[in-house]
Simulated assay, not measured.
Amino acid sequence: MTTLRSENVPKSPDGGLQSERTSLSFVRTSLSILGLSAACLRWLPPFGAASLIGPLIAALLIIAVTIFERRSRPARLALFTTEKATPALAMGGVLAMSLIVLSASGLWILLK
């Protein structure tokens, strides 16, 4: 019977690209939500300034996620190369929360 030892396991040729793809997906999702928040400016004339509360909160959450993601990227890359990386659940949660806030504010405006 043979056993796998750590020296027999081939190293991944990825070299951290998976972490880069994850980072780019956070940026891409953030930009799309930020664009949707900017598109909500069309509600300003008929509904007034109260219609901008939800998009403004969503935009602030997105900006916070983007700044945090940019600052934590090198540390995540280092953890990924040592195979100690954990999922970025907090950033994903904040992105989801910004979508919920944006959706709720849109429903509130339409039902008002």
Score class of each variant (00 low, 15 high):
T2C: 02
T3K: 14
L4K: 08
R5L: 12
S6W: 06
P10V: 14
K11Y: 09
K11N: 06
S12E: 08
P13K: 06
G16A: 08
G16Y: 03
L17N: 10
L17R: 13
E20N: 12
R21Y: 06
T22V: 05
T22D: 01
L24A: 03
V27D: 02
V27K: 08
V27W: 07
R28P: 02
R28E: 00
T29M: 11
L31I: 09
L31Q: 04
I33C: 03
L34E: 03
L34W: 00
G35P: 05
G35I: 03
G35Q: 05
L36N: 03
S37K: 02
A38K: 02
C40D: 04
C40A: 15
L41K: 08
R42Q: 12
L44I: 11
P45V: 12
G48F: 10
G48T: 10
G48R: 01
S51R: 08
I53E: 07
G54A: 15
G54Y: 07
P55W: 01
L56A: 12
I57Q: 05
I57V: 15
I57F: 07
A59W: 06
L61S: 10
L61T: 03
I63D: 01
I63R: 00
V65R: 07
I67G: 08
R70I: 14
R70A: 15
S72Q: 15
R73I: 10
P74S: 00
A75S: 15
A78D: 15
A78L: 14
K84D: 07
T86F: 11
T86C: 07
T86N: 10
P87S: 10
P87L: 13
A88F: 00
L89V: 03
L89C: 09
M91G: 15
M91N: 13
V94G: 02
V94I: 06
L95S: 04
L95D: 10
L95I: 11
A96F: 13
L99H: 01
L99A: 09
I100Q: 04
V101Q: 07
L102S: 06
A104T: 09
S105T: 01
G106L: 12
L107K: 03
L107I: 05
W108D: 03
I109D: 04
L110W: 15
L111M: 14
K112R: 05
